[in-house]
Write a protein that binds this DNA or RNA. Structure first.
Length: 329
RNA sequence: GGUGGCGUAGCCAAGUGGCCUAAGGCGACGGAUUGCAAAUCCGUUAUUUCGUCGGUUCAAAUCCGACCGCCACCU
């Protein structure tokens, strides 16, 4: 028990529990109303918002990422927007480093850091820390991908089993991405990934207390998602993607996988007789599926409390309620 | 009115007499997730059921008949 607790935060990259405890978190699936709510909360609490989002960090990607508008950003200080160019890569680790410096800055201004967003991995890493492990070696990954398609599905799995049985047991043989990561870590450090990963959730008393995840009715959410995708299309999503395609350093691997961007790019590159309306529907479907996956993250984090919404919830009212809760430390 | 074609899960769709107590894809739902995470991966998903009823056969989603529905063409 005790040794485990001590290990947390020493071998990994994480924000000190005492600092983290002063932060507030409002997460939720896409289109659940986080932005509006965060602004409502800001009317009751002296917050600065740090977006908890893997896509709003990109400049020039405006429409598809549903960033808070300039007007909204002028009302409350926002961080985590427009940090890098679309041709740059990004990772959880980059996010955590950024978040930590922002949190410290905000606290030094006597203000309250409020994380708002939906990226599950980032949230988890913030709350639990990220194990100390080496950065990506893209060339190595590419080679392994190539080999695994050549040598068959179980090859990677067996390779991992040989050097890290714990991780191999945990991962599905088809999960190439994580198997490759396990091999990558071993090659770069000489130690199995599972050894790097030992970590536990902070004990109850040291966790951040205000982590809420919005849990709206499924039907309501899906309807909102569909409507929002339509709005993005009307606002010129296609033109935005065309502009991104014209960029000189091409759009990075991480940036091009954004919802809406990926589908439109594929369509522009090879329409394959597809109608534009089908592309729009595809984006809606994939966004709905994404929202569902997001909730799996939240449900899993015991630190996070569900904030149930009904289909006619009022922004101002719920905002006040959440702010009220967030009042005490 | 006539001729031909089709009718399999929420959708698309294989199967044309026994190995079908019915492939696959999509969707939906559930799960995973530790430097690509809006990504990626996994699982479940047809009241012996194949438009309905009847017949042939040891045996039918698969053959025959009638009926219902849809589509194409002809008049």
């Amino acid at each position: 028990m005790e040794p485990d607790q001590d290990r947390t935060g020493e071998a990994e990259f994480s924000i000190e529990p005492e600092v983290l405890r002063q932060c507030r978190f409002l997460v939720g699936p896409t289109a659940s109303g986080k932005t509006d709510l965060s602004l409502a909360i800001a009317r009751h609490l002296p917050v600065e918002i740090i977006l908890l989002d893997s896509m709003t960090i990109y400049q020039k990607m405006e429409i598809g990422t549903a960033k808070p508008t300039l007007l909204e950003r002028s009302q409350v200080v926002h961080h985590g927007v427009d940090l890098i160019e679309p041709w740059e890569e990004f990772s959880v680790r980059d996010y955590l480093e950024y978040a930590r410096t922002k949190v410290i800055e905000i606290l030094s201004r006597q203000r309250v850091p409020l994380f708002v967003g939906g990226t599950g991995l980032y949230l988890r890493s913030l709350l639990r820390g990220l194990c100390e492990s080496p950065p990506a070696d893209w060339e190595f990954r590419r080679q392994l991908e190539e080999q695994s398609t050549k040598l068959g599905a179980d090859w990677l799995h067996q390779e991992v089993a040989a050097i890290d049985p714990v991780t191999a047991a945990r991962l599905n043989a088809a999960d190439r991405r994580r198997l490759i990561r396990a091999l990558e870590v071993y090659r770069l450090t000489g130690r199995p990934l599972s050894e790097h990963q030992q970590q536990v959730a902070l004990p109850e008393g040291r966790r951040p207390r205000h982590v809420y995840w919005l849990n709206p009715p499924r039907d309501w959410l899906y309807a909102r998602i569909n409507a929002r995708v339509n709005q993005m299309v009307e606002a010129g999503l296609k033109a935005e993607v065309e502009m991104l395609r014209g960029l000189t350093p091409p759009v990075s691997r991480t940036a091009r996988q954004g919802l809406g961007y990926k589908e439109v790019m594929a369509f522009l590159e090879a329409p394959k007789g597809k109608r534009w309306e089908q592309v729009v529907e595809e984006i809606q479907t994939r966004t709905r599926q994404f929202a569902k996956r997001q909730m799996t993250w939240y449900r899993n984090l015991e630190e996070a409390k569900a904030w149930d919404l009904n289909s006619d919830w009022q922004i101002a009212q719920v905002g006040a309620e959440i702010a009220e809760k967030m009042q005490d430390i």
